[in-house]
Simulated scan of single mutants.
Amino acid sequence: MSAVEKPGRADRVLLALAGLVLLVFGGPVLAIGLGATGPSWWIHQDQHDVLLSAAQRTHWRGEGWWWPAVIAGLAVLLLIGLWWLSAVLRRRRLAEILVDTGDGEEALLRGPALEAAAGARTAALDGVERAEVRLTGRREAPRAGVRVLLEPYAAPGPALQRISDEVLAQARDSAGLERLPAEVQLRAARHRPQRVQ
């Protein structure tokens, strides 16, 4: 069983927009279908009304561009949905890492434990305000994603070098991995200026 990482900001925005559209358009339809009276501005008032009349549904059917446009629009929506699903599935966090013990046997190392240890080690480096480590990929070939918030005085170059040489190398060695590809995102913290009196 593998843990799935929390949705990112773009995922949350898309889910919120989809939910809002469903609520705004589906909520009144459901309420009216259950017998409630609809608002005066809504497109139908009675539970026996239809959203689109037969004339509205067939108005453009005779036009040569109608069906290609409908099919192209649906295909675009399908491709966007598949792209989003594959992006979410690719970002799955590893629940465990396969470790070669050196005696012909293998052991499993909990992914969240290694993430927590590497994150704490990164956060303890000089110039790092906050750090988060995520392991993705396959359990026999993990990849690390490191997000670091640097103190305003910290230089990115030396911080990246220390993360690579100390944190990632130690994580790679402790898990018995030949290699641990990593993507490190550095961001500088912004502190509000304070007035000195």
Score class of each variant (00 low, 15 high):
Val24Ile: 14
Gln185Leu: 12
Arg121Gly: 08
Ile32Pro: 02
Leu74Tyr: 08
Ala182Ile: 02
Trp84Arg: 10
Val76Met: 10
Met1Cys: 04
Ala113Arg: 08
Leu20Gln: 06
Arg92Thr: 13
Arg134Met: 04
Lys6Asn: 11
His191Asp: 11
Ile43Ser: 07
Arg90Tyr: 12
Ala131His: 09
Val76His: 00
Gly8Asp: 14
Gln161Val: 15
Arg143Ser: 11
Ala31Asp: 12
Arg110Phe: 12
Ala175Pro: 07
Glu183Leu: 11
Ala141Gly: 06
Pro142Arg: 02
Gly104Cys: 02
Ala120His: 06
Arg162Gly: 03
Arg61Val: 15
Gly19Lys: 04
Ala116Met: 09
Gly19Trp: 08
Arg9His: 12
Asp173Gln: 11
Leu98Tyr: 03
Ile80His: 06
Glu106His: 10
Gln56Ala: 14
Ala123Asn: 05
Trp84Pro: 01
Leu98Gln: 11
Arg130Asn: 09
Asp100Ile: 03
Val50Cys: 05
Glu105Met: 09
Val133Glu: 00
Leu52Gln: 09
His59Leu: 13
Gln56Thr: 03
Ser40Leu: 12
Trp65Ala: 08
Leu23Asp: 03
Trp65Val: 10
Arg121Asn: 13
Arg91Lys: 11
Ser174Glu: 15
Arg172Gly: 04
Ala171Arg: 05
Leu177His: 06
Gln47Cys: 00
Met1Lys: 01
Ala69Glu: 05
Leu15Pro: 00
Arg9Trp: 15
Pro152Thr: 01
Ala171Lys: 01
Val21Trp: 11
Ser174Ile: 00
Val4Cys: 04
Pro156His: 00
Leu98Trp: 09
Gln185Gly: 03
Ala55Tyr: 01
Leu150Lys: 05
Leu150Asn: 00
Val196Leu: 15
Val88Tyr: 08
Ala55His: 10
Ile71Gly: 02
Ala189Asp: 11
Ala188Met: 03
Glu132His: 14
Ala124Pro: 07
Gly38His: 04
Ala18Thr: 12
Ala54Ile: 04
Trp67Met: 13
Pro152Asp: 02
Gly145Pro: 00
Leu125Glu: 06
Pro7His: 05
Glu5Pro: 07
Leu78Lys: 00
Leu150Gly: 00
Gly35Asp: 09
Lys6Pro: 11
His191Asn: 08
Arg162Asn: 07
Arg138Lys: 14
Gly81Ile: 03
Arg130Lys: 15
Thr58Glu: 15
Gly176Ala: 02
Val128Thr: 06
Arg91Ala: 10
Asp165Lys: 03
Asp49Asn: 06
Val24Gln: 07
Arg12Asp: 13
Thr136Ser: 14
Thr101Leu: 09
Gly111Cys: 02
Arg9Asn: 13
Ala144Val: 06
Arg12His: 10
Ile97Asp: 01
Glu151Asp: 14
Pro152Asn: 02
Leu177Trp: 01
Gln47Val: 03
Ser174Thr: 14
Glu166His: 02
Glu178Tyr: 01
Leu14Ser: 06
Asp49Glu: 07
Val50Ala: 15
His48Tyr: 09
Glu129Gly: 00
Ala54Phe: 04
Ala124His: 06
Ser53Arg: 00
Ala188Thr: 12
Leu160Pro: 07
Leu108Gly: 02
Leu125Asp: 09
Val148Asp: 04
Arg147Gly: 05
Leu17Lys: 01
Gly35Gln: 08
Val50Tyr: 04
Gly145Cys: 00
Gly33Tyr: 08
Trp60Gln: 10
Gln170Arg: 12
Leu85Trp: 13
Asp49Ile: 05
Val21Leu: 14
Leu114Pro: 06
Leu79Asp: 01
Gln194Val: 13
Gly27Val: 01
Pro68Ala: 05
Leu180Phe: 04
